[in-house]
Simulated assay, not measured.
Amino acid sequence: MAVRHHVIKADPAAVWEVLADGHRYAEWVVGTGESRPKRGQWPQKDASLEYEIRLGPFRLGNETVVRHCREGHLLELEIIAGPLGTARFSIELREWGDHCLIIADEHPLRGVGAVVHNVAVEALIQVRHRSMLARLARCCEDAPTRRPQPSVRQASGAEGTGRA
């Protein structure tokens, strides 16, 4: 089972905002072409996205289905890769000080991927996860801070008094 941890210098809400936007899936998932909603409201249970995976000159139509979602904390997906089979991908978000600890876990479920799964394949998945989590971090860390900052008036308690 390929499990990888990564600390993203953003709060979990900012990371969840990226994960919950199905149109941004291709920004952080390595090898994925433009994603489109296929069914349901992403990331609700049973919602899905469709996209292409590029493997050199080959293109493979894929679908990712939400199997479990705990908003803001956990997203469990089933990746359906046609003849390659299916895989479970889970991404958990935890507060880590002012940052977000990501725990990504992937393993094959059915098909060729499950049959040929071995230590070498596991190493390739780890390399892919390292790149994927770095891309996710860039999406989250480069985003403008969404936390409202108090104005000088609000901070000084002069709000609504007409005095600065």
Rank of each mutant, 00 (worst) to 15 (best):
M1T: 00
V3D: 09
R4W: 02
H5P: 03
H6N: 11
V7A: 04
K9N: 06
A10R: 03
D11A: 06
P12C: 13
A13N: 05
A13D: 06
A14H: 06
A14K: 04
A14D: 05
G22T: 06
G22F: 12
H23C: 07
H23E: 15
H23D: 15
H23G: 12
H23R: 09
Y25W: 13
E27Q: 15
V30A: 14
G31V: 10
T32C: 14
T32D: 07
G33W: 01
S35Y: 01
R36W: 12
R36T: 12
R36G: 09
P37K: 14
W42Q: 10
W42S: 12
L49V: 04
E52F: 10
E52T: 08
E52D: 10
I53T: 05
G56V: 07
P57S: 01
P57M: 00
P57I: 01
F58T: 02
F58P: 02
F58D: 03
L60M: 04
G61K: 07
G61T: 04
N62M: 12
T64H: 00
V65R: 05
V65K: 03
V66H: 02
R67I: 06
C69Y: 01
C69T: 10
C69D: 04
R70L: 02
E71R: 05
E71T: 05
E71A: 07
H73F: 10
H73D: 10
L74M: 14
L74K: 11
L75W: 04
L75N: 09
L75I: 06
L75F: 09
E78W: 00
I79M: 10
I80T: 01
T86F: 03
A87F: 01
R88V: 00
R88H: 08
F89S: 11
S90R: 08
E92P: 02
E95P: 15
E95Q: 15
G97V: 12
G97Y: 13
G97L: 10
H99Q: 13
H99F: 04
H99Y: 04
I102S: 05
I103L: 12
E106T: 03
E106A: 03
H107S: 11
H107K: 14
L109F: 11
L109R: 12
R110N: 13
R110A: 07
R110G: 04
G111R: 07
V112H: 11
G113I: 00
A114I: 00
V115N: 11
V115W: 13
V115P: 09
V115C: 09
V116I: 15
H117Y: 14
E122A: 10
A123I: 03
L124G: 14
Q126C: 05
R128G: 13
H129D: 09
R130D: 03
R130H: 05
S131V: 14
M132I: 07
A134P: 03
A134G: 09
L136A: 02
L136P: 00
R138L: 12
R138H: 13
R138Y: 09
C139H: 12
C140Q: 08
C140H: 07
E141L: 04
D142R: 15
A143S: 14
P144Q: 08
T145K: 05
T145Q: 09
R146P: 00
R147C: 13
P148I: 06
Q149Y: 12
P150I: 06
P150Y: 03
V152T: 13
Q154F: 05
Q154G: 08
A155K: 14
A155G: 11
S156N: 12
A158K: 13
E159Y: 08
E159F: 03
E159R: 11
G160I: 06
T161P: 00
G162D: 00
A164D: 12
